[in-house]
């Protein structure tokens, strides 16, 4: 007969032994009275512990649930990242609006300068503004945006690329407003879906 399996009896009793180990334990228990007695003791103790299990199973389910529901705070506490996400989401329209204002303003001011240049108004100042790089005497490791980056009908957005079809600048008159519009619509759809879900949950 093999050595006693005190260490494994508990795991065997709790159904935590599988495959080979289980078979080994079963084979040993068949031949070993001492280990079989250990197993019986575990079983006996377990039945005594569970004898009064029914006593505690008296809870009235519906009453208990309604009592819990009454004690629940109205809102689920949100984690900081959920709060941050919510705030960031609500700031998107303001950000889009700022970008649009920036785009339209730079576009308009460039057109104004170019128009003035064509008409010969303030020629000297405008040519300085359109050609002179800013801070020429200072060495900087990256290029600063200057007004000469904004060529005819352009804006700072043109640093991303210029799209011309039959001489018409689509990037300004069509593409960027379209992107802005699509982003705004996507945001509105997202907001609407969230509101609908909240409404459903309330009902």
């Amino acid at each position: 007969m093999s050595k006693h399996i005190d260490a494994q009896i508990q795991a065997y009793f709790d159904g935590e032994l599988n495959g080979k180990n289980r078979k080994k334990a079963e084979a040993h228990l068949k031949d070993c009275d001492k280990c079989q007695q250990g197993l019986n003791e575990l079983s006996h103790l377990s039945s005594i512990l569970q004898a009064d299990l029914k006593i505690s199973q008296k809870a009235n389910s519906d009453k208990f649930v309604s009592q819990v529901m009454l004690r629940l705070p109205r809102k689920v506490r949100q984690t900081w990242w959920q709060k941050f996400g919510k705030t960031a989401y609500m700031l998107i329209p303001a950000l889009l609006l700022l970008v649009l204002i920036f785009h339209r303003t730079t576009n308009f001011s460039n057109n104004l300068l170019l128009g003035a240049d064509l008409l010969g108004i303030g020629e000297e100042e405008i040519s300085t503004l359109l050609s002179a790089p800013v801070l020429t005497n200072v060495e900087i490791p990256f290029p600063l945006p200057t007004l000469d980056m904004f060529d005819a009908g352009g804006s700072m957005w043109l640093s991303l690329g210029n799209i011309n079809v039959f001489g018409i600048d689509l990037s300004n008159s069509f593409i960027y407003p379209l992107i802005f519009g699509l982003l705004s619509i996507s945001w509105m759809i997202g907001w609407w879906v969230t509101q609908e879900q909240k409404q459903k949950l309330k009902n």
Partner: peptide, 28 residues
């Protein structure tokens, strides 16, 4: 998932599902 979104009714179902176990654990 519904409870995490604030659905109280779904949470009520979860309470109903686990109430006996939780009561037992606390009692024992």
């Amino acid at each position: 998932t519904r409870s995490k979104n604030g659905d109280r009714q779904a949470f009520g179902d979860l309470v109903s599902l686990h109430q006996q176990g939780v009561i037992n654990v606390v009692y024992r």
